[in-house]
Design a protein around this nucleic acid. Structure first.
Lengths: 201, 201, 201, 201
DNA sequence: GATGAATGAGTCTTCATTCAT
DNA sequence: GATGAATGAAGACTCATTCAT
């Protein structure tokens, strides 16, 4: 039984890998479930044994991203606390794992870096976006206790949108150009956040 | 003959209106040509008398946006020159017509505010993006002559991405929330551009 | 009024020219009436002022072929009578104008050299085929009075089918190869007809 | 699994049967894939599980014909060798299975007896025509070793065209008329081939 | 007579999803 | 659980033909 579930988990992982890879290549809409199944080495019917529909795949993938990001985030702040860092370094530490993940999994763009998704996809990826935004809001609130919840969320939302907007170009850029763009992204974030960051003077 | 062509022009306008409205509701991919035709009050065949394929509709729509933006931009700077304004006001003047247009035509988001388009759409809307980015780059270069071309284009690209990223939320927001978001957008742009704007000391 | 009709006749001729040219390039089925009209330099509506439907164009074209062939045939036997010639020369004289016409108007293949036409086309071109077959049958009967009508028609039908079958390759062949194929066609016809030709000993 | 594939093979056969029947009735161009599917008792989507497009159906059908003809040909010469027969009997033995097959499957005319095909069909059926012509050329060469390859192929091509040309009438004819036409076809072939057949004195 | 927009059924093909085995 | 055939509603696009001007 454990064996069973283990195999099931592996199948699920394989499907998600296949989906992510396909999303990277052709985008969410153009990635057919049959193609995902084929790339995962299973039959279409089997795919539907694990996911009720295409949307659920995106959902599961989103959850996987949430987990990965949670871990990365925790790692990034393992040694120092969020309130001890200068803003520039904070931005760097928060931004780096996100970029790293997206560069490593370009398919994530379809879930994270997309601004105009079909309604279904938007719904499926909402938890991902909320998780990311929530974490950022928490950090901002921690550093600037005078912020209301609404303000923290608003600033976080804007900041996350900026990150998402530049993720596409960053992932698509050549090695060299990428560094430059990452620099610009950080500069934009610092420029935006400095005025509302209590720890920045 | 003139009558004919006048009617033709009107049909084209009606089709583009219908397409824009549908794009606003369901996005580019989900807007079927048959649905566009139906909404324009014509038959599918008629649509193809004016556009060779779906992509061409997006293209024509893009051109319409380019024209509208060119006009709006010219109007915005009719009285004062680009190099005479403080950065904050410059941002406001450049940003306002864009926002106004997008709020009035929410379908524009599918063409302008989208980050992950099907290849065909991306090709069709490239001129639009280049026109917008080019205009911004020109303004930046005019204010900061020490910038290389590449730098001007890079800063403009990033700035435009930021605008596009926030256009979705701005358009979707309620009246009140919208103003707040617009304020944040401006703050983000000023924060990003001030360090490289020669006129901002 | 005469002027009117003259212009009408010319329009008809232009349409038929356009149709023939298009048939040559893409075949009957793929030649759209709109394309024919465009190539004739008129509007689709105008085309239907002269022909009630696509089939009628093929019909008119067939009639034109019938006329052309009648003339060519008459010319070919202006100096000598059909019963005075050796079979080989007879075949040559009957075959030459047909080949000449088809080489000059490759579109004719769609009407004459086709074996498996849509029912409508077959009906429209029947008169053409009957005219050609009828003429051949008449010649055969003139030379071999002992043939019954049915026999003359049957031999003529087979002979014409052979000609049609080889017309495609002949028209498509290069200059040099063409002569060889024409030779083979003649040999085939002579071989087939000699046994039933009273004048061939 | 074997069961599965067996069913697949049967479906393919059913589709090809349906296609052949429809081709017989309305020709290749007018036979829609939906109609083929309907006649095969399946949905349009199912058809595309076995064939990537309409052309591939024609291709598969051609291959089926090639196989059937190969078998028939082999049977026809099981007892005697090709070089031992008088020309008239050779013609009969080569011609009979072809006629038999076409009479039994009148749709074959669309693939085999057609002279003016859409480009796609022509490509799909080339192997069929080459197989038939090749076999005839081989027989001619075996009987007349002095023939060059080019000559053998040329004579074979012409002979096959003659057969194709008369196949339509033969298939369409009534029982009685058919025999007569078959006789004429043989006579035509013998008349054409006798002069170049070394074994016919 | 001419124009060209309009029609709408029909074409090939795709794809998310289901179901018998 | 797995398989892969089956489904059928769309989708983009075409084309012979009609009709208002």
């Amino acid at each position: 039984m454990v064996r069973r579930q283990a195999r099931g988990q592996q199948r699920i992982a394989e499907i998600l890998d296949a989906a992510l890879a396909l999303f990277a290549e052709v985008g969410y809409a153009a990635a057919s479930t049959n193609a995902i199944a084929a790339r995962a080495g299973i039959s279409p019917g089997s795919l539907y044994q694990f996911f009720r529909n295409k949307e659920e795949i995106a959902q599961a993938l989103s959850e996987r991203l949430v987990d990965a990001l949670r871990t990365a985030h925790a790692d990034a702040f393992a040694d120092r606390d969020v309130v001890e860092l200068p803003l520039a370094e904070l931005v760097e530490r928060m931004t780096d794992p996100l970029i790293g993940f997206n560069v490593a999994n370009p398919g994530a763009k379809a879930l994270f870096g997309n601004t105009d998704m079909p309604a279904a996809l938007a719904a499926a990826t909402r938890p991902l976006h909320e998780a990311v935004t929530g974490r950022v809001a928490a950090v901002l609130a921690a550093r600037s206790p005078q912020l209301s919840d609404a303000e923290a969320v608003r600033y976080a939302t804007v900041a996350v949108h900026i990150v998402r907007a530049l993720m596409g170009p960053i992932v698509a850029a050549s090695e060299g150009e990428r560094e430059v763009l990452i620099g610009e992204l950080r500069r934009a974030l610092v420029g935006y956040l400095a005025p509302i960051d209590a720890l920045s003077v």
